[in-house]
Amino acid sequence: MSTTRDLAYSRLPLGERIKRTLLRWWPLYLMLIPGIVFFAVYKYAPMGGLVLAFKNFKIKKGIWGSPWVDPWYKYFQQFFKSPANRNIIANTISISLWKLFVGMFPSLIFALAVSECRKRGFARIVQTVSYLPHFLSWVVVYGVATAMLSVNRGVVNDVIKKLGGQAIPFLNSNEYFQGVIIGTDLWKGLGWGAITYLAAIMGIDTSLYEAATVDGCGRFRQIWHITLPGIRKIFVVLLILKVGTILDAGFNHVYVFLTDEVRSSGEIIDTWVYTQGIGKSNYSLATAVGLMKSVLSTTLVLATNALSRKWEASIW
């Protein structure tokens, strides 16, 4: 039915087609204007700055006046030739993959628990408490982590020692460092990450549950057949968006926790770029690495998005 209409439509001359489209959709195009202006001015206009990756940046000459670098891949080479490179790519991917796959499920399970809890008051209290860590800056989280995990004065090690065990150097050994990073990330984002899922669960048509109850459907099965399909779309969308950030293992987070002792397991691309690029005013290097990350992320997002079509969810 609609195909015949489309066919008829596509036979019309271009001018006529534009006219009809505008006539039909103009209020929506009108709504888009502020958004488009915003993205054009504040996002696209500065993007010309990416050219810095290929320029020998001179502050006084500005971005466009700076000379081209020779060879053009100089900064990319600097990144790949750095001996530090042996670890940082592996660390970055390892930390962010763990964050991605381990990080999403606890929030989801927590959101389900909150929505299923019969005592609304209790659920609300837990929920309110659960997002508190989100507001603490990483510096403070580090302080809290020290209070819990430190060898000398940490609560956890205190308990271990009292039970006759050996203190575990959580914060200052390469074996535990990535675990601590993932754990603290999980802790900080658990409740906050659940908010989106909860909003999606709230949006599910309640009559579906009523019908299911009448049919004698248990609550496990209700979750499986109604809740999870109901939030599948948002879950997949969030997953795709997170894949786009796979090369960001969380600069602010890792930077605060990183010490020389755990550099071989903890240095990530962004912390390296920070000391190499920003610390030495080498914006070209920082831009080049950023550009490389962007290209990779885009590829990953495109791939995941294509895959996700199978679950009928797409970000565009």
Partner: peptide
Amino acid sequence: KLVTKLIIFTMLFSAGTIPTFLI
């Protein structure tokens, strides 16, 4: 779809501190 793609592009490619400052 096109506009959405263009917008998502800005999430993946960010311009950096200095160019944004100038704008």
